[in-house]
Nucleic acid binder design. Structure first.
Lengths: 222, 222
DNA sequence: TCCTTTTTGTTGTAAAAACAACACTTTTTA
DNA sequence: TAAAAAGTGTTGTTTTTACAACAAAAAGGA
């Protein structure tokens, strides 16, 4: 089957064998399509007919607000989906432009077929739904985490909140974060240079230590 | 059937008739329980065995971090659920204390029964899952909205971003918001008095007008 | 109705963050 | 490997925000 290897690595289809995948491609009226760098995968405001699954490459979701300002809301990697929440929430249109940031292979899954009972009663359909549910739930919890850090007043508190949560996840005061400094500042919605200054202060005060993406919480204080 | 009227008003069970509800109470190993004001419904760190559905009353989810600081993460009303995202994401423990803020009636639904195929193959089980999926997706989109507003740098931008989004939802420059000023400040994570000052300025500059919870965008500018 | 509580707007001050500009380092890629 | 690009830390300045304290208005309860 075409692209089975890529499907197998995604959270959504990880449980299914080649035959089942093949069958589900019909269930979900899927189609594969490749996009070049900077090509638009879906456009903000277009009818939400398909949920998107990135199989190769990467993409960004960018939103243009009514003041004309562009903001990048998320970065999608292999295995990531776009539009699932919107589809399940009953939205009719895409909320963002989805743009390939490199040559990408994308799978389109028909939202109607996804949301409604499978006409073929295929066994694996329920697993896919459960997997989708899991990814939605996980992304929701990630949003909650981010919100929790961002709701802190000062940059230092935002940083500490994030570090403590990362420290908990790795069960150690030593941990690695998935961001460089610039990305961390974006994640926490603070000015990069101001954050850099604060990090240096915290290091000087002996609260934390860090090198590249490696961090160490020494004292849990503010 | 006991408490059918309350169940019927929730998003989760809205599709089901009394007989089906009755059947599902067995499927999900549910139990009803009443709580007095300030009683703890579930405790942070306890095993996540049940998803909670508030049928009467109200509750708050409060989180105590490792610095001992308490923060209120959400306020639950009738029909609201707690723990669904955690359950579907495979979390093992409750992330917060859930505390009744008034005399409340609560339904507990067994997470294992919810997540796995129904042994009774009851017809409505899938609808409940779909409804749950919808509520999770909707709450996820609400979080995204909030995050979008909060990521703006200045208080004025946060306010404008929120107002524009509320205006879009009601298809009018006149709209009502679900918050009083204090609650709005909490929602946007800004200081109430600073926000009050900013609102007054915006009114004086002729950008917006407001009275109580009624707002009007006059000019979409900053 | 009156009294109490909550909500709201205002002000001044202190603290913090954004911003801009720069040098230096690391990473990428041609 | 050299050149270009991206990332990082530092500084000083300006702007914004948080904080605190208060009075007035509105809402709720007895």
């Amino acid at each position: 089957m075409e692209h089975f290897l890529e499907l197998k690595t995604t959270k959504i289809f990880k449980d299914a064998n080649e035959f089942e995948c093949q069958a589900m491609m019909f269930c979900f009226k899927t189609r594969f399509k490749t996009f070049d760098k900077n090509e638009i995968i879906v456009s903000q405001g277009d009818e939400l007919e398909y949920v998107i699954l990135i199989l190769k490459g990467a993409a960004i979701a960018q939103n243009i607000d009514s003041l004309g300002e562009i903001s990048i809301l998320s970065q999608l990697k292999c295995g990531d989906t776009y539009g699932v929440e919107s589809a399940f929430a009953g939205e009719k249109f895409y909320k963002d432009n989805l743009i390939a940031t490199e040559k990408s292979l994308v799978l389109f899954l028909n939202t109607h077929r996804l949301l409604n009972p499978c006409p073929n009663k295929c066994k694996r359909h329920d697993f896919v739904l459960k997997n989708l549910m899991q990814t939605v739930a996980e992304s929701s919890m990630k949003l909650l985490d981010k919100l929790y850090h961002m709701s802190k007043k000062s940059t230092r508190e935002k940083l500490m909140s994030y570090f403590i949560s990362m420290s908990k996840k790795s069960n150690s005061t030593y941990f690695e974060i998935p961001f460089n400094k610039t990305e961390l500042a974006n994640y926490l919605s603070v000015d990069r240079s101001a954050m850099s200054t604060e990090l240096s202060k915290m290091k000087a005060e002996g609260l934390i230590d860090f090198d590249k993406k490696q961090y160490h919480i020494i004292k849990k204080e503010l």
